[in-house]
Write a protein that binds this DNA or RNA. Sequence first.
DNA 1: GCGTGTGAACCTCTTCACAGCG
DNA 2: CGCTGTGAAGAGGTTCACACGC
Lengths: 212, 212
Amino acid sequence: MIAVKVSEKSIRRLSHYARCLRLAKRNGESIMTSQQMALNCGISSAAVRRDLSIYGEFGKQGSGYNVDNLLVNIERILGTNDPPAVIIVGAGSIGCALINSGLEGTGGYTYNSIFDNDPAKTGKDCAGRKIRSIEDVAGFLKDHKEVIAVIAVTTGSGQIALDKLVKAGCKAILSFTLEPLRAPKDVEIKYVEVSTELDVLTHSMRRKERVD
Amino acid sequence: MIAVKVSEKSIRRLSHYARCLRLAKRNGESIMTSQQMALNCGISSAAVRRDLSIYGEFGKQGSGYNVDNLLVNIERILGTNDPPAVIIVGAGSIGCALINSGLEGTGGYTYNSIFDNDPAKTGKDCAGRKIRSIEDVAGFLKDHKEVIAVIAVTTGSGQIALDKLVKAGCKAILSFTLEPLRAPKDVEIKYVEVSTELDVLTHSMRRKERVD
DNA sequence: GCGTGTGAACCTCTTCACAGCG
DNA sequence: CGCTGTGAAGAGGTTCACACGC
């Protein structure tokens, strides 16, 4: 595999292609064209081919892409052929709901453990898993080199949670809090911001009215 | 207000500026510079000024931006000065968790109602709200012209939920399902995809190892 | 002096369109 | 003939750097 630097946008699309390929695989399809993937992912076929061609020549002219083969390659590019452990910090409603919904059909991730800083919660059950004390995080990160932590604490405690995670050596974080978090720059942070999505949707609704 | 067409990226940033301004307001600050906002949002000050200058001249040279004034203007641009109603479709763990966490500090949105297609759930309580039958959605959309629907159903039922919403006249949807949804193009759809975020984080972790 | 607003340069991503292979 | 892979053109977004107003 060649190490290529590539935009996050392209990576997001690879993730979509992978999902689309898994679906095709489940349906017993063995070949897909760039056009079929494009339709599925709502982009142009040229974009699909461009994204894939960055990493190698996975397709066969005249026919398309072998589903199994392409999926393996994309997962290798993403690194999800050997997915890191995923933990949740914050056993509130969101944290437990995430565990509850699981990560089926997403390429092999599973929620490994859930942690909370509230002693009253520790030891209690959350969707079949015992809630562990946040103080155990350091130990967990010693045992698992690569861990993605999902922060689902109440607004205001995000930074505290993050600091503990960073101190324990965590390098990848997905946060559901609305606070902008501060971390060393070798720590990657992504956010799920429902309120921003709502803003985008509101704006687009209003703009359409204006245009009509 | 001038109608300007602008990228979604810029709208997302406006949403962040608004959040940052609300925080400043709560802290009693009345003036902010582009640099302060930039720091808070993790971008460059030039980008902040560029974004704002598209819509007008909100700042004062030498001092900065008036917090209250700028916030009002951004909310007017986004349309969140009069936020649309937000409903949830799917009273599973995610749907209920969303209601439970609420939308405090997000610019005025509130979850209005939650719907489900399972008759066994209808009438039951979900975080203080009675779960309504999905069949009531049409009526709800007649009463409220502008509605954002959050789809939080189990994977596989997303398209069915969406079809009902579209039929009832809903024009803006935020989906937590992993399926790519199909809708008329005057219906705006946004997705929250935890698994894609995990893929992006996995990729970036692995790339860093490679570089080191 | 300080911070905004903005032309201009720069850079990155997307789309087009076609050569080339199966 | 069909579909991939890709140079080349185009579009869009970002950064620079500075004139201008407070």
